[in-house]
Design a binder for these strands. Structure first.
Lengths: 199, 199
DNA sequence: TGACAAATAGAACGATCGTTCTATTCTAGG
DNA sequence: CCTAGAATAGAACGATCGTTCTATTTGTCA
């Protein structure tokens, strides 16, 4: 990795952390330069525009998300265990300072068209598709009922995650995590075949 | 209402619309002055600081929310019909340009302490309490099971709303509304007494 | 090691931010 | 109708935004 790429990567690592906490718009060229010990223009040269920096931040976030949430889950057994791993890994991801990058960024970009939004939509879609896919596999494994609508399952699971984020980060509700796990267990239980619906 | 209050109210009405679409931070003194036909300083004098304006925007949003979502629902019969009315009124509220003010504002303020955040947390809490209260009444009316955890119900309902917002506004998923209603129906069905759990 | 390119710094730009000042216009009550 | 005070305008402030320019330093490779 050349010197330039190395610096760029270091910038993005810090930019992603910052964006998670104070939002993408809060990651200012000046502030980021200060935090990385570079000059404004020196940092700027790595990206060419604020918009390109925003896109790079989203891509860095996606990279880290895949690395720390998706990949480890794919090592779990197919079916319900993998669904549960995706869920648990997401909880851990959302427990970092600033919460889940994507939740914050979505709200920030949802009425701001342009390349950063496109990149973020793609990442969100990938995540939801992954959830639905995991549910479909669980159906195939016999863990979930054949009649399950996997997309609907992903929709509702996503809602539980959003509610978790809202209750813990914004409302600072102490039992947010308990409520979240309860909701998840209810969702999974309802997804199981009638014969296995114990709880 | 004096001239000053009249102007202030007109400013806030526009400020709230704007904040819903471009976020609270996007509602700049200059921009708001331009849109209302006032000078920057003339407008500024009504609030004294940007932070005070932010608080006023949140309060205006709360006022309108109560007026157009809560109040009409309280005219519906107690129990499940009222729960459904709260839900449907919220859907209509979230269908305005910019979506639901509170969803956007929460993400914006969740890591920015201060009076605006406090005002927003209070409003969100009121809303969630209202949902839980409606669920408790439904239990008392016999529409929902006596074993229902009303707070958990509110938590999950809130999640469905958040997911709806995300899928329709951000992901532009065409069938977001259908998924939302399906999720709601599932939630309500699970809340009913075992004897009435038809669907 | 020398040379060329890549990487970074520094200064300056116009624009816009929130805010403060003073001056002017308007409105309402005696 | 007159006047005191409320309401608004206008100009200016320092700060910071993204961006552009020209130097200067640094790394890389023949």
């Amino acid at each position: 990795m050349s010197k330039g790429e190395e610096t760029r990567q270091a910038i993005l690592a810090r930019a992603f952390e910052l964006a998670t906490v104070i939002g993408i718009a809060g990651v200012t060229i000046g502030r980021l330069a200060e935090e990385t010990g570079l000059s404004k223009s020196g940092l700027f040269a790595h990206f060419g525009s604020k918009e390109a920096l925003d896109v790079a931040i989203v891509e860095e976030a996606s990279r880290q998300f895949v690395q720390s949430v998706m990949v480890p889950a794919l090592r779990e057994p197919r079916g319900e265990p993998r669904v549960r791993a995706l869920f648990e890994n997401w909880l851990a991801w959302g427990a970092r300072p600033g919460g889940c990058f994507f939740v914050g960024a979505s709200a920030e970009l949802d009425d701001r068209p342009g390349p950063p939004r496109v990149a973020l939509v793609r990442a969100s879609h990938d995540w939801i598709d992954e959830l639905a896919k995991a549910a479909r596999i669980a159906v195939r494994e016999g863990h979930f009922a054949a009649s399950l609508d996997a997309e609907q399952f992903a929709f509702e699971l996503y809602g539980i995650m959003l509610s978790c984020h809202q209750f813990s980060r914004f409302l600072r509700e102490p039992d947010a995590l308990t409520r979240t796990r309860t909701a998840f267990d209810r969702l999974v239980a309802a997804a199981r075949p009638a014969s296995a619906r114990s709880r």
